[in-house]
Nucleic acid binder design. Sequence first.
DNA 1: CGGTTCCATGGAATCGGTTCCATGAATGTT
DNA 2: AACATTCATGGAACCGATTCCATGGAACCG
Lengths: 344, 344
Amino acid sequence: MTTVTIKDVAAAAGVSVGTASRVLSGNPATSAASRERVAAAVERLDFHPNAQARSLRSARTHTIGLLVSDVRNPFFADLAHSVEQAALAHGYVILLGNANEREDQQDRYLNTLISQRVDGIIVAPQGDGSGAIRSLLNRRIPTIFVDRTVEGINLPSVTTDSGHGIRQAVEHLAGQSHTRIGYIAGPQTISTGRERFTAYTKAVADNFLSQDPSLVYFGDFQAASGSSGVDALLRLDQPPTAILAADSPMAVGAVAMLHRMDVRIGADIALVAFDDIEWFALLNPALSVISHSVENMGRAAVELLLQVIDGGTPESVVLPSELIVRASSSTPNPAGSVSSLRKN
Amino acid sequence: MTTVTIKDVAAAAGVSVGTASRVLSGNPATSAASRERVAAAVERLDFHPNAQARSLRSARTHTIGLLVSDVRNPFFADLAHSVEQAALAHGYVILLGNANEREDQQDRYLNTLISQRVDGIIVAPQGDGSGAIRSLLNRRIPTIFVDRTVEGINLPSVTTDSGHGIRQAVEHLAGQSHTRIGYIAGPQTISTGRERFTAYTKAVADNFLSQDPSLVYFGDFQAASGSSGVDALLRLDQPPTAILAADSPMAVGAVAMLHRMDVRIGADIALVAFDDIEWFALLNPALSVISHSVENMGRAAVELLLQVIDGGTPESVVLPSELIVRASSSTPNPAGSVSSLRKN
DNA sequence: CGGTTCCATGGAATCGGTTCCATGAATGTT
DNA sequence: AACATTCATGGAACCGATTCCATGGAACCG
């Protein structure tokens, strides 16, 4: 590992390290002559400034931490991509952490990000804010929440108004004479899990549909729990004729289980998923979804964070959600169609 | 941004910074008494060591760079996840870069990773090795290739033997009397694109199938080109009765276009994709795939890299690929079934 | 032409850790 | 009891950049 330092560059260019540094950082107090000679030396030696040394002194790393809940969830993969592109456009690099929907891994990453002295952190948080998130607040590290928030912690955030989309979905299903709408909920320890569940509950009540609590299955936002949810709901004495899944991995699990049970989506049962994933439209029948723009979310998150880094206190952003109706929620004859399948 | 340094810790614990540092880095030359006092001070002050300062002196960052071609490609998202988990188990943090299948973004990230002085780099490379990859070699930065390689650059790698799976797929299709197998190839500038294309060509020849060059469409490993590929192939005077897509995003694009054209997969045309993605099995009909273990690939990559970091020169690893037959490639009556659809 | 201003420059301090070295106390050896 | 050895410790040098400060030459001005 040959190491070229700014000293080597200065020597090669015949200037002092101070001058070399000024040229490198674009300080205007440099002559054209030395700019030229330093540039040539950098080129010749293939010099890459040591980011550690640089940020040790300047207290800026030009790095932002992004902590997502689960990279394999396409929603977060897309989010990572859009955050990364937006950050890149502003000269920042992202350090990506993956909490795997676990609070201990989140804390571990947060501590790493703090140690790395990232300029700011964008986090889709887990838990109740008792762990490493406290350290962020205490140290006043620029932080914003994305997708989710933590109750009692007042940080700028970019979230989705899931209420609107869920209301639309429930009304849409009610409009097709579904009265028993099953709901595969996210964990109630996560803000989106709570918010979407509340919206479902309210929409069901407002539309005079069944409020039978056994129509709700509490999952964990991961695929396996979507499968268990379908299994549990279809075992009920009076199973739902439509199911709404609170995120896309659980929807995937639901689809898999429905296939396994030979229940025809869009015919025997209606299915709607929260989150629009590219290939949901490719399923046969195509899946109806509640969509929100991950592109906008990523961009807004970076912009908010940069404002906080610059000392501002920006307003939180709430993005809209919208129902997209496809074939999976167009049940020809909803009532009672599934009950005959229960015996399988 | 309150900053707690090791000096504060040392003062609070009543020891010198040297001793505090030794305690923190687990140096055995410390007394139980000072270990205890330092630990207490760290806890009380919520001290997080500055990784910059630490690695500036010790020349170790405990960070490895992972540069993938496209985070939104589920294959690479899964790879990122498995690399991350494997790295975490060894006390390393990953810095994730996303090249977006573009060489300029790759070079930009490589330079950043070099500046960040990561201990090593795992890269799924783009291009011909003329760009920033040269800098890696010159500086002898521990680097390994994953998934792909670069011709003429001799670095340890973890790749898939795509040949076996592709041969199986072609034989499987030939066994169902397909004689014209369309191929949506990856770019020939990428090793996997070349290798898979070569394997297809050879398998087609070995099985005495049509070697009509117009059966091959060259895409770019991204979804849109899968759609164009299907469009082009089905416009032929003699369209293929089966299509093999060289990666999963192109397969997604292919599926989307086939839907749009109302061509029934598994009936009008057979389809096989390289890469197994969780939900490919959920499509109706389920998609036949050539599968390889991304889990093993990630783990092997981290292990290889750690060996290089420790000064070793490990052997490259080649993982197997395997055909998984599902309904999409079980065409009941292949011959000529698509030609009637061409007029649409 | 003398004095002020401007500005590029070199040198040194600095960031926050790690690590080397000298020291002195404690322990062990004969 | 004298001496060698071990070992925790404090202090200082060091990693590679940035940034402050003093300096000296050029430009400008009356």
